[in-house]
Design a binder for these strands. Structure first.
Length: 1065
RNA sequence: GGGCCAAUAGCUCAGUCAGGUUGAGCGCUCGGCUGAUAACCGGGAGGCCUCCGGUUCAAAUCCGGAUUGGCCCA
């Protein structure tokens, strides 16, 4: 690409982006940029690894775009940024996908297929998925180290998990224990609570009578899981509640039933009872110790019967719902289990990991629990213990992968006992900065406070094997188990001969390894880690620790991580837990927590709703840079993003303005062979607007930097875009056009070139992290061989005090406000900008700074409003037929007038007084309200009103406000220039019709119907000739000829290029 | 069922911390400009600030409750 080459008229993102991809490849842009910062201060960013199933959706795209933005920005700030991407590749989701692929039904199929072969399939699948994700991320223009991602399935990475786990064990935080867990009976594994999805289902709803042993009557319980009745161990009541014994009639029989006082009515109705009588009231507390018979004793002889079982206890999970007495089975439910442990009761769980009753379930042995519901209800009915049966619609947990209904059972699991170090966890939270901070102090803290021990074991195949070896008759004490931390240690301790550098430590390999020490042989426990443990070690796994200690010492902990808010309970938490357990500290210093990508209606994107927007489609429709700008224009802190095609299209439009601003000076620079290297903008003869736009650039740079440091890139982007649109395009370029169109070389033109060049070069640097493609395209075109090979090697701009000039910016802000009002006044007077006006009066109502700024800059205001003179009238004087109302300062009016303050305010708003005096206002308010008021200077600010028939328009700027009036009286002088400019415009249009080159000379033939006008126009022939590059006025024979109607005057204009005329001679 | 977050113009969002007459961009509409031209500029319309209560002279803003949506948990 050579300097100032012509570019497409229209910004076409896809063309730019494809060109830039090729260019980056050709110059090794990414590698060069990294090398360029290799000696910079290290910055340790850690990528939260996306899970390798499915493809990149809008949320992942947002996430990676944010990461790319901040990485690029930090590099421009001079940091040597760690940018290793990661992938989370183990776990049940991939196993189930592979099972589907292979047509498997359950674990037996896997065993038959062979564990090792199955693991190999999983790895292949995960690798395929990884490739797809990488291609997506690259296509978004994300610059990370794609050649060397960290993968949670690499032995080096898996070792990081082993090491962390061993550290936790050294601190005494690892134990095996029984817990009530959510089990997927198909996957035959525990699944984490957050992996349980709740669906609406229909289940049995039964009321069961438990006959009391030493008293007349029965306790009544309610459940939706008849299959847990065999494991019933106790009944829970609310100690503070009142229970009633009722004698109720049904089918000619009288029964005595115990129910919560608030539940009697409903429960009896469910059971179809008629009359009843309350015969006793008893506090829950008093019922403790009452014994009852197990309702399925005959069917399940092994049902609980030991010390303390089949009695009433209090529990805090009891509510006055259904019966107010709760069937409790510590072998199943989580709260039942916890209360059972407290009470020291035996745990009875007759259900296997596959959800099938074991022998202990007596009659029901061999049957799948949900299938046994029917038989159990039948038996309860038969033995007279069923009070009522019905069905109920409710939410019930299902496996997130295979949608099988989960069951609660008690099994042996491995835990990291984070509850032992909860205080430490809570302290460590304080060591990281969160954006937004409240997320840390409220949501995260709450979650950590309530978090139970971390169940890290899964009874599956595709995961990091838990590195624990136990002897055959293990006591359960961790002292007597071996926890291996590294591959090196593994090779040293196992009986078999393995090479630590090449050994794969997946289940297929390590399950066969044994350790023999002091005559005892240890075998590995079968489980693998919960996949959340994998990513929890990412901060050291990313940098190859524990094999690579040096990098660890240099970088750890992470400077920054950024993920969506669902990771509060996920990665933010797992890292805190593992980091604290293994390292004693939180492994990240800053967290940027963003939201989720929702659809245009604010609903989450999902397959079932059919509202998913693919990033690929966005790229096809609008391009990468516009997509990125849209994603980056959204608040990244905590809030969800509503996707919007319209906003994305708008971003493309904004970039098109950038494109126009960039391509606008190119033809001139080319023509004049402008050489940026020979003109330093500091030495150029810059004019007011040049200095102004350069100052604005400094302010915008400083503003952006501040926002970027606070992780508010959406505000930074907003500042940048409005700089380009408002300041550069709408003001600077408009102003500077005449100077570039000048034919002769001039210091003014050169200063404009130098200014534009400098502004554009710095502006694209500011764009570089946001929209890397268009920034590169423009940068390369501008700098040619003189710049870096890529814009991304540039430093982030710093505010230059040389150019920064706040007073000048204030002046121009005032001028622009007055100009806008002036244009409006002109429009009201129907006098187009082409026609000069004799005078513009700017009447300043309030504001010393405003008056000073405008008075300073009447020349530029005159130029922009095409006025012969501009007069600024200061606030001490009045001009024209103005009336005044007043705006109230409610913080003063409120206390003064109390509940009448609102009415006083309205009266002030409605007042129209002719002088700016408190007396006049007071009189007007009194008129309106019928009472006297005392106003002070501080309470009111005068607002002026212009009579409707005067062409005046109000404006506000800086510290004040005012009005602009335009005097549109015509003089011959003005008519002369006005008509001349009308001619110029039309000749220009005809030049364009002919598609003439900018430099082309022409001959112009003017034939104006009205002699007076013709004479007036002739006075400006010189101006016309200069503006339209005409060498001759006179008869044109073959030229482009056109009739025009200008302000009621007919004129015929003919234009002929002179080169053509000569050629035809 | 519980915790946290959000709701302001047709759309996307500021304003809410620190109560005092609701703003921007886009879209719509009317007009202007014309060697950046599929660009650019100006005017206008468009808001019971989700709803119901409370505190206050005064609430988009503070408090309580509801509705809808999002995340997390049960």
């Amino acid at each position: 690409m050579s300097r100032f080459d012509p570019v497409d008229d229209q910004y076409d993102p896809q063309t730019v982006e494809e060109g830039v991809f090729d260019y980056w490849d050709a110059v090794d842009a990414y590698e060069q940029t990294k090398d360029h910062r290799a000696d910079g201060e290290p910055y340790f960013f850690v990528d939260g690894p996306p899970y390798t199933s499915g493809s990149a959706h809008m949320g992942t795209t947002w996430n990676k775009t944010l990461k790319d933005l901040y990485i690029r920005y930090l590099r421009m700030q001079g940091y040597d940024v760690t940018d290793r991407p990661g992938y989370d590749m183990h776990g049940l989701p991939i196993e189930t996908k592979v099972e589907e692929r292979l047509g498997f039904e359950n674990k037996k199929d896997i065993e038959e297929y062979g564990e090792e072969a199955f693991i190999e399939e999983c790895k292949e699948f995960a690798d395929e998925q990884l490739q797809g994700l990488q291609d997506d991320f690259k296509s978004f223009g994300v610059w990370m180290d794609w050649d060397d991602p960290y993968k949670t399935v690499d032995p080096e990475y898996m070792e990081a998990a082993w090491w962390g786990f061993q550290q936790a064990d050294d601190r005494g935080l690892v134990e095996q224990g029984q817990r009530s867990i959510s089990q997927c009976p198909r996957c035959e594994t525990a699944i984490a609570n957050n992996e349980v999805e709740y669906d609406h289902v229909q289940d049995p709803s039964i009321y069961v009578k438990f006959s009391l042993r030493e008293k007349e009557g029965s306790l009544v319980i309610w459940t939706t899981t008849p299959w847990t009745i065999p494991a019933n161990t106790f009944v829970a009541v609310d100690g503070d509640a009142t229970y009633q014994a009722v004698e109720a009639q049904r089918g000619g029989q009288t029964e005595t039933l115990y129910l919560h006082e608030d539940c009697v009515e409903d429960a009896l109705e469910q059971g179809g009872y008629g009359d009843y009588e309350v015969i006793e009231e008893v506090a829950g507390e008093e019922m403790v110790g009452w014994e009852y018979d197990h309702p399925l004793r005959e069917e399940v002889p092994d049902a609980p019967s030991g010390e303390g079982t089949l009695q009433v206890y209090t529990a805090d999970y009891v509510e006055a719902d259904r019966t107010g007495l709760v069937h409790s089975a510590p072998g199943h439910g989580e709260v039942d289990f916890e209360r059972g442990q407290e009470l020291g009761l035996d745990i009875f769980c007759p259900v296997g990991p596959d959800g099938v009753y074991e022998d202990a379930a007596g009659k029901y042995a061999g049957e799948f629990v949900k299938d046994a519901d029917e038989a159990i209800m039948g038996d309860l009915e038969a033995n007279g213990n069923l009070l009522a049966r019905d069905t109920v619609h409710h939410d019930y947990g299902h496996c997130w992968r295979c949608d099988t209904g989960i069951i609660q059972i008690v099994t042996d699991q491995w835990f990291i006992t984070v509850t032992d170090i909860k205080d430490e966890l809570l302290d460590n939270i304080e060591e990281s900065e969160w954006y937004p901070q409240e997320a840390r102090d409220v949501r995260f803290r709450d979650f950590v406070e309530d978090s139970p021990d971390w169940n890290v074991s899964r009874q599956r195949y595709w995961g990091i094997p838990i590195p624990i070896w136990t002897p055959e008759d293990w006591s359960g004490e961790m002292d007597e188990a071996i926890v291996v931390g590294t591959r090196e240690e593994l090779a040293e301790r196992v009986d078999q001969d393995i090479d630590p550098d090449t050994v794969d430590i997946h289940k297929g390999t390590v399950d066969d390894l044994t350790i023999t020490e002091d005559g005892t042989t240890y075998t590995r426990v079968g489980d693998v880690f919960d996949v959340w443990l994998d990513s929890s070690v990412a901060t050291w796994g990313t940098i190859g620790f524990p094999s690579d200690e040096e990098t660890f010492e240099e970088l750890w902990p992470a400077d920054l991580i950024m993920e969506a808010h669902d990771q509060t309970r996920g990665w933010f938490w797992s890292q805190l837990g593992m980091g604290s357990a293994a390292m004693g500290e939180v492994p990240y210093e800053q967290v940027l927590m963003h939201g989720w990508a929702l659809d245009e209606d604010g609903r989450k994107m999902s397959k079932s709703l059919g509202n998913i927007v693919e990033p690929g489609e966005a790229i096809d429709r609008h391009g990468r840079d516009p997509m990125r700008l849209f994603l980056l224009s959204v608040n990244p802190q905590g809030d969800d993003m509503k996707f919007s095609w319209d906003e994305m299209a708008e971003m493309k439009r904004r970039l098109n303005i950038l494109w126009n601003v960039f391509r606008f000076p190119l033809p001139y620079m080319r023509m004049d062979e402008f050489d940026p290297e020979s003109v330093d903008v500091r030495d150029a003869e810059t004019e007011l607007v040049d200095e102004w736009v350069l100052s604005r650039l400094q302010s915008v740079t400083a503003e952006m930097t501040e926002y970027m440091e606070d992780f508010e890139q959406h505000k930074a982007l907003d500042a940048l875009l409005s700089f380009v649109v408002e300041d550069v395009s709408r003001f600077y370029v408009q102003t500077v056009r005449d100077r570039l169109w000048e034919e002769d070389d001039s210091s003014s033109k050169e200063a404009a070139y130098a200014t534009l060049y400098h502004v554009l070069e710095e502006t694209v640097a500011l764009f570089a992290p946001f929209s890397p493609f268009i920034a590169e395209e423009i940068y390369q075109n501008l700098t040619g061989d003189a710049g870096f090979d890529t814009v991304h090697m540039k430093d982030w701009p710093d505010r230059s005090e040389f150019w920064h000039d706040e007073a000048l910016e204030a002046d121009v802000a005032a001028v622009r406000a007055a100009e806008e009002a002036g244009s409006n006044a002109r429009q009201q007077a129907e006098r187009s900008l082409r026609w000069p006006v004799t005078e513009v009066i700017v009447d300043v109502t309030t504001g010393e700074d405003l008056t000073a700024s405008l008075a300073n800059r009447t020349d530029i205001l005159a130029e922009r409003l095409n006025a012969r003179t501009v007069t600024v009238v200061d606030p001490e004087e009045d001009w024209g037929e103005i009336t005044f109302s007043a705006e109230a300062d409610m913080s003063l009016l409120g206390p003064e007038f109390g509940d009448e303050a609102g009415r006083v305010m309205n009266a002030l708003n409605d007042a129209r007084v002719t002088e700016q005096s408190l007396d006049a206002l007071e009189a007007a308010v009194e008129d309106e309200l019928g009472r006297e008021v005392d106003l002070t200077e501080e309470m009111v600010e005068f607002v002026r009103h212009t009579p409707e028939d005067i062409s005046g328009t109000g404006f506000e700027a800086l510290d004040g406000s005012g009005s602009v009036y335009v005097d549109t009286e015509l003089t011959e002088d003005i008519e002369s220039e006005g008509y001349a400019r009308e001619v110029i415009r039309r000749v220009q249009e005809m030049r364009k019709d002919l598609d003439l080159d900018i430099e082309e000379r022409i001959a112009v033939d003017l034939d104006i119907d009205d002699d007076r006008i013709a004479d007036l126009v002739r006075e400006h022939e010189g101006l016309i000739a200069e503006e339209v590059r005409a060498d001759e006025f006179g008869a044109v024979e073959d030229g482009h000829r056109k009739d025009w109607e200008v302000e009621g005057v007919t004129m015929t204009i003919a234009v002929e290029p002179l080169a053509a005329a000569e050629a035809s001679d």
